[in-house]
Design a protein around this nucleic acid. Structure first.
Length: 552
RNA sequence: GCGCCCGUAGCUCAGUUGGAUAGAGUAUCAGAUUGCGGAUCUGGGGGUCGCAGGUUCGAAUCCUGCCGGGCGCACCA
């Protein structure tokens, strides 16, 4: 609808331009958007004010001239000039109502756009090390990454969701040692020192380890025992992570193992290649990548003096595979504490011959918890949720996802556990889900009364001209542009906020208007509206990975 | 010291990328239903958009400098 209006404005401008001889065929970058105040109309444009600067004329005069061009236009009910030179357009209501046919026609795909034109995009997220269960911070990253991937897919991109597993290196050795120490402790040999990973979960891992290998593994040679412990622990923890994510309704297409990069030799060969190109040099026995020239604070070590490659070395090889897989955009979702890594990775992309602009890093800020009126930083405290598992068990996947997606990921957020748990009107998740359930309930009621849902072509759309109806229609037709906004800004919270507004308008409409009534023509047209609304809510929730229940 | 994010109502946060009189929820106070789900709806009070400059027709939004909070500045990952 917005596009239709824009085209009408452009047409009017061109005609006026020819007639007045301004010699400016291009109207420039003007804005067409719904005004904040409903009384101003359906859309407004700042075209006249943009032109005023260029043409050195008064904005209001220009606006008057432009407005006159719409006098006998069938699209608009009114075109007015207001304020410093805004033009406000009000469409004939029937044009709005007709748009509803698009919603019911597109049904499950309403909201999809072709913004991305099928371009390949990777979204890499979570990528937590398999050294312990996911915590709440990972959960926020998981929700944001998953929703963002879904948003981009709805916006017409060809999306790959990927989890990069750091399943090799020092931390894996530490994990193996911790497992072995806990296992020996369980077998009656007290530990002489704290294990590298101290979490309680390591005791469970150790017990399962003994169960699988038998107690004799504990007396095996250190090398053998350690190798077994390392592999068992990482696999078992990874399995737990996969299960947590699955229960959190988060899906991945590819699980990419760091180990395979080393095993295939691509880390070493890439270092060799960059050495030849002069992008890596040797100093004090170590190999350094010249990231300093590319905006990083300084150059970075890729191979230590002791011959062991760093994490960065593997990350170079990993991002090389992303470039080789020909993604046009590489989205990485990281915790905010990794922000120092951004210029480094951009430099890496440059060194690999890629365009650093391709790399889009979304930093997700920290989560703190509020429970029983008290705030907790995300440190480990007794009685406070720390793992993703705990919070989804306690609060439920839908509510946790909604809460994580409700706020801009740029802001630190406080997770109100009591609010998320409450099954009341204060809880925004239920507010939205309830709106959907209500729509479904209306259809159930109609069915019981023997009122069949009308076919769209049979509906008299000219009946949908009430204020409440038009508000609702205008809002629900915005889903595609909200999806695009969320895709362009890489911010899922636009959708959450939008759905809340849609739900609010519906609850208001529902309170003041009856859908199924004695008036069969009106009933039919309103049922068509409610169907379009139900589709909008369902698709919006679907994008966010949140259930749209038919009953609650 | 350098860098990134944040600072908007008592609290938690939006603000369509520079537009018109700055908005929700919550808390608080006062109300609404003999019909489709009260998990709903209506109204009131509540603001120096951290501070100070600048850019222009127009700034919560862009630029500069301060102040405050968080997080980073490894031959860890």
């Amino acid at each position: 609808m917005r596009i239709t209006v824009r085209k009408a404005i452009e047409k009017a401008y061109k005609e006026l331009n020819d007639r007045e001889g301004w010699g400016e065929a291009d109207p420039g970058a003007f804005d067409v958007s719904p005004p904040r105040e409903e009384k101003f109309g359906d859309f407004s444009t700042n075209l006249a004010m943009i032109l005023a600067a260029r043409l050195k004329k008064k904005p209001r005069d220009l606006a008057e001239k432009l407005a006159a061009a719409f006098l006998d236009d069938d699209l608009f009910e009114s075109v007015e000039v207001a304020g410093p030179g805004f033009m406000n357009f009000r469409l004939k209501p029937v044009h709005w109502a007709r748009e509803l046919s698009r919603v019911s026609g597109e049904a499950d795909s309403f909201g999809r756009t072709d913004l991305g034109q099928g371009e390949k995009v990777m979204v890499e997220f979570v990528s937590a090390n398999p050294t312990g269960p996911l915590h709440i911070g990972h959960g926020r990253g998981a929700a944001v990454g998953d929703a963002l991937a879904s948003i981009l897919a709805w916006a017409g991109y060809d999306v790959t969701r990927e989890y990069y597993t750091n399943d090799v290196g020092l931390q894996m050795d530490n994990l193996g040692r911790s497992t072995l120490m806990r296992a020996r402790e369980a077998a009656g040999n007290p530990m002489e020192e704290e294990p590298p990973y101290r979490g309680e979960y390591m005791k469970d891992v150790a017990r399962a380890f003994i169960e699988k290998y038998g107690p004799e593994i504990l007396s095996a040679p250190d090398d053998e025992a350690l190798t077994a412990a390392r592999r068992f622990a990482s696999e078992s923890i990874m399995e737990g992570i996969r299960k947590d994510l699955a229960d959190f309704n988060v899906r991945f297409d590819v699980w990419y193992s760091e180990k395979t990069l080393h095993d295939s030799g691509s880390v070493d060969s890439l270092i060799g290649l960059l050495l030849e190109k002069g992008l890596i040099y040797e100093q004090e026995g170590a190999l350094w990548l010249k990231t300093g020239e590319q905006g990083d604070e300084k150059d970075r070590v890729v191979r230590r003096a002791n011959g062991v490659t760093t994490y960065l070395a593997a990350d170079i090889a990993y991002h090389k595979t992303k470039l080789d897989r020909e993604f046009s955009t590489l989205v990485n979702i990281w915790g905010a504490d990794h922000h120092g890594y951004v210029p480094r990775m951009k430099a890496v992309i440059s060194a690999l011959g890629g365009d650093p602009e391709k790399l889009v890093v979304r930093l997700v800020q920290l989560v703190s918890l509020k429970k029983g009126g008290q705030s907790y930083a995300m440190s480990t405290r007794e009685g406070v949720f720390t793992t993703l598992r705990q919070i989804i068990d306690e609060v439920g996947t839908d509510a946790v996802r909604y809460f994580f997606l409700m706020r801009s990921s740029d802001s630190q957020m406080e997770f109100d556990v009591d609010l998320a748990k409450s099954q009341s009107s204060e809880n925004p998740v239920y507010y939205v889900q309830y709106a959907h359930a209500r729509c479904c309930s209306i259809f159930r009621q109609a069915d019981e009364k023997g009122v069949a849902e009308p076919r769209f072509e049979e509906v008299d759309l000219s009946l949908l001209t009430g204020r409440d109806e038009l508000r609702l229609i205008r809002k629900l037709l915005q889903l595609p542009e909200v999806v695009e906004l969320a895709a362009r800004s890489f911010q899922p919270h636009h959708i959450t906020g939008y759905l809340y507004e849609v739900a609010g308008l519906f609850h208001f409409f529902y309170k003041h208007n009856r859908v199924v009534s004695e008036d069969s023509a009106l009933t039919a047209s309103r049922m068509a509206l409610i169907r379009a609304l139900q589709i909008t809510l369902k698709n919006g929730l679907e994008i966010l990975g949140i259930n749209a229940p038919e009953k609650m």
